[in-house]
Write a protein that binds this DNA or RNA. Structure first.
Lengths: 244, 244
DNA sequence: ACTATACCCATTGTCTACAATCCTGGATAC
DNA sequence: GTATCCAGGATTGTAGACAATGGGTATAGT
């Protein structure tokens, strides 16, 4: 079948790209927002994004709706026309966001706390690993923000994935990445307080070892709440917009 | 401009419908799911829904993505083709859902609890109204499920809208309607236990009057947790699928 | 110079067409 | 009789076209 063979050659590329545009658009646009390449408050034009991502407006549009539902993008509605803008960055928003994440993680943590002891110790092993890596970075005064953020995220994600059911996990996955925006926008300054967060992580680990749901929940909530305070101080100094 | 005039005649209808399809699709499909007209676990075909709603697949498709993000619809992914099915109804899911709602409302309730006293009393006035209406229905043995559900929803929504910020409110609005599915599927049996829920509402009211955030949070969480237990018993008896 | 009005362009919301993929059913070979 | 494979329909994913709307700008009138 030479016809088939010829067709398959073309479809190698097509097959690889068909059905992935929406996902790709979602993650790429989210990346743009989280990394501040799309400045908070700036106005989004579907066609521009579509060109940038080399795809049609259809998947871009859907992706934007997802992002809107999750709070990365907000809608200026004039009658029935919706202008989308990148969600602005404010102290109030950070406070609410961090508080929600803290409570969501707290709820998941409660379940983690009552897992069988063997499983808990397994988890604690991972957590201690992440935390000691963080300590290493601190003492080395190595300020590669990316690595730090990933370690912190892995710490939390490990707890949540162990304890949360599918709904709670999905909720966490949709909310938590938004904290990354604030991390990245104000990272350089947050890093100085990293040792505080690491200490709070130790408390959380201890609580998991003890198998005390209330204590785990409180620990996680506190970690986020304190993180929010630390962040608020920085925002106070540097202003609310993603500058540049 | 006769051409313009002729065009405007056509556009009277078009103008009324332009830009509302997505919203309409979202709410109508959600309604279908919540009311059980789309049976849990059944397989969704975009084109069928589009025909049913008298619109093209595009807005339907977007609406389905929203619903997927919010958990009304889940995705059976085979490679890169996603088949959407109406989210099944299970005891586990109900438990997780109710727990999440309880904690989200609890968090909002904390803020409500620390509002100025005058505002709190104003809120409490509304709440007492809803609750006394519920009592009336109970004593009258009037089992119009719809009214009961709305009253209960208004009770909770009043608290949340008073205390929650935009993010938390959006979160609540996207999660809470899913409880309605369970209400409706098993309503007839839940109503018998309504007096318990009403009593719990009284405790919540008292906590708001006292201005005690912990107590308000606990009250709301308990209300949902107990509701979940009551629901679980019913599911146990009637089976997990939306029958009919 | 300032305001009001009308037009035009930028942008969004929807629709239709097409490409890719999956699933089912039947035909064929063993 | 059963297993396998091909074909065709059914369904999803993307692209591009088109209609509608809103805001900005140029122009004219005062």
């Amino acid at each position: 079948m030479p016809a088939h063979a010829a067709a398959s050659k073309q479809s190698v590329r097509a097959r690889a790209e068909h059905g992935n545009s929406l996902r790709k658009a979602f993650y790429e646009i989210r990346e743009l927002i989280v990394h501040g390449r799309l400045s908070p408050g700036s106005w989004i034009v579907e066609a521009d994004l579509a060109r940038h991502l080399a795809m049609s407006r259809t998947p871009v549009r859907s992706a934007l709706h997802w992002l809107q539902r999750e709070g990365y993008v907000i809608e200026h509605k004039n009658a029935r026309k919706s202008r989308m803008v990148v969600a602005p960055v404010t102290k109030e928003d950070a406070g609410e966001l961090y508080s929600i994440i803290g409570h969501v993680e707290g709820l998941a943590g409660r379940h983690t706390a009552v897992l069988p002891k063997s499983r808990r110790l397994e988890i604690v092993g991972l957590l201690k690993g992440f935390n000691s890596q963080l300590r290493t970075i601190i003492t080395a005064r190595d300020s590669r923000a990316a690595g730090i953020f990933d370690l912190d995220r892995n710490f939390h994600r490990t707890i949540i994935e162990s304890g949360a059911g599918p709904r709670l996990l999905a909720l966490h996955k949709s909310i938590e990445p938004q904290a990354e925006r604030y991390w990245r926008l104000y990272a350089s300054s947050i890093i100085n307080d990293l040792h505080l967060s690491v200490a709070e992580h130790d408390e959380i680990i201890a609580a998991i070892v003890a198998g005390d749901p209330d204590r785990v929940e409180r620990g996680l909530q506190m970690n986020w709440e304190n993180g929010c305070h630390r962040l608020a101080r920085v925002i106070e100094i540097f202003g609310e917009r993603g500058s540049w």
